[in-house]
Lab assay of single mutants.
Amino acid sequence: MTVRVDGVDYEFSSLEEAVRFALKMAKSKGAEVQLHNGTFHVE
């Protein structure tokens, strides 16, 4: 599972870890999280 934040990809071994990271980053940026074909994008 890959989480992309500001064009940088972060790899996670589990969906749970990836979701937690994506939500944490989105909250800190006041951004939204989108899921596309198994890849999260924080914008």
Rank of each mutant, 00 (worst) to 15 (best):
33 V>G: 03
4 R>E: 03
8 V>P: 00
24 K>Y: 14
5 V>H: 03
41 H>K: 06
39 T>R: 11
4 R>W: 06
36 H>Y: 11
33 V>D: 02
23 L>K: 09
6 D>E: 07
18 A>E: 00
23 L>P: 00
34 Q>F: 15
23 L>Q: 10
11 E>S: 12
15 L>M: 11
8 V>Y: 06
35 L>F: 14
29 K>S: 11
38 G>D: 07
41 H>C: 14
34 Q>L: 12
41 H>Y: 14
27 K>S: 15
29 K>R: 08
11 E>M: 12
21 F>N: 01
21 F>V: 01
20 R>C: 15
17 E>F: 02
38 G>A: 04
3 V>N: 00
37 N>S: 05
43 E>G: 13
42 V>Y: 05
4 R>A: 03
11 E>N: 10
5 V>R: 01
25 M>I: 11
1 M>I: 13
18 A>W: 02
3 V>C: 09
1 M>H: 14
20 R>T: 10
15 L>D: 03
41 H>A: 05
11 E>P: 08
2 T>V: 10
13 S>W: 09
5 V>N: 01
30 G>M: 04
19 V>Y: 15
35 L>I: 11
2 T>N: 06
16 E>F: 12
26 A>Q: 06
43 E>S: 12
23 L>Y: 13
13 S>Y: 08
18 A>S: 02
29 K>V: 09
25 M>S: 04
28 S>F: 13
29 K>A: 11
26 A>E: 11
2 T>W: 13
16 E>M: 10
4 R>S: 06
10 Y>N: 01
14 S>F: 03
12 F>A: 00
31 A>L: 11
21 F>A: 01
43 E>V: 15
40 F>K: 05
27 K>Q: 15
10 Y>D: 00
3 V>L: 02
29 K>I: 13
36 H>E: 06
11 E>L: 12
40 F>G: 06
3 V>E: 00
43 E>L: 14
39 T>N: 07
42 V>C: 12
7 G>N: 06
20 R>F: 07
16 E>Y: 09
20 R>S: 10
34 Q>N: 10
11 E>D: 07
22 A>I: 05
12 F>Y: 01
21 F>P: 00
17 E>H: 04
25 M>A: 09
42 V>N: 04
43 E>M: 14
9 D>I: 11
5 V>W: 04
38 G>M: 07
42 V>T: 05
18 A>M: 02
33 V>I: 11
15 L>S: 08
31 A>F: 11
11 E>K: 13
27 K>W: 14
13 S>P: 11
18 A>T: 01
7 G>L: 02
15 L>C: 15
33 V>M: 05
18 A>Q: 01
29 K>P: 13
15 L>H: 11
39 T>P: 06
40 F>S: 06
20 R>P: 00
41 H>M: 08
43 E>C: 15
15 L>A: 10
33 V>P: 03
10 Y>Q: 01
33 V>N: 02
8 V>K: 10
16 E>P: 04
29 K>N: 12
43 E>W: 12
9 D>P: 05
5 V>S: 02
19 V>F: 14
21 F>G: 00
34 Q>E: 08
22 A>S: 02
16 E>C: 15
15 L>G: 04
13 S>D: 12
23 L>A: 07
3 V>F: 02
37 N>L: 10
35 L>P: 03
10 Y>F: 09
17 E>M: 05
26 A>G: 05
43 E>F: 13
17 E>R: 03
7 G>T: 02
13 S>M: 09
42 V>G: 06
19 V>C: 15
40 F>A: 09
7 G>D: 05
39 T>S: 10
10 Y>C: 08
36 H>W: 11
21 F>E: 01
2 T>D: 01
17 E>T: 03
1 M>T: 12
12 F>Q: 00
22 A>Q: 02
32 E>A: 12
37 N>T: 06
36 H>C: 15
24 K>W: 14
29 K>W: 12
24 K>S: 12
18 A>Y: 02
41 H>W: 13
12 F>R: 00
28 S>E: 15
29 K>H: 14
41 H>N: 07
19 V>K: 09
42 V>F: 07
28 S>W: 14
31 A>I: 07
40 F>H: 07
20 R>Y: 07
38 G>N: 08
16 E>H: 08
22 A>R: 02
33 V>R: 01
24 K>C: 14
26 A>T: 03
35 L>V: 08
14 S>H: 03
20 R>K: 12
5 V>Q: 01
12 F>G: 00
39 T>W: 07
25 M>L: 06
2 T>P: 01
31 A>T: 12
41 H>L: 12
5 V>P: 00
27 K>I: 15
31 A>K: 09
17 E>C: 15
10 Y>E: 00
34 Q>G: 04
14 S>C: 13
37 N>G: 10
26 A>N: 03
16 E>L: 10
24 K>N: 11
2 T>L: 09
25 M>T: 06
27 K>H: 15
12 F>V: 01
36 H>K: 12
3 V>A: 01
14 S>G: 03
38 G>Q: 06
32 E>W: 14
40 F>Y: 08
21 F>R: 00
26 A>L: 09
22 A>T: 02
24 K>T: 11
19 V>L: 14
22 A>H: 01
9 D>M: 11
10 Y>G: 00
24 K>A: 14
34 Q>M: 12
35 L>N: 04
6 D>M: 05
5 V>F: 06
2 T>Q: 05
29 K>D: 13
37 N>I: 09
4 R>T: 09
40 F>C: 15
14 S>V: 05
37 N>H: 09
9 D>V: 11
4 R>G: 02
35 L>W: 12
3 V>H: 00
5 V>Y: 07
33 V>W: 04
32 E>K: 14
13 S>I: 08
14 S>W: 03
10 Y>M: 02
4 R>K: 07
2 T>E: 01
7 G>M: 04
38 G>E: 04
21 F>H: 01
42 V>L: 05
8 V>R: 08
39 T>D: 06
37 N>R: 04
13 S>H: 09
14 S>E: 04
5 V>A: 03
4 R>D: 01
3 V>I: 04
33 V>E: 02
22 A>F: 04
21 F>W: 04
23 L>M: 08
13 S>R: 10
2 T>R: 10
6 D>Y: 05
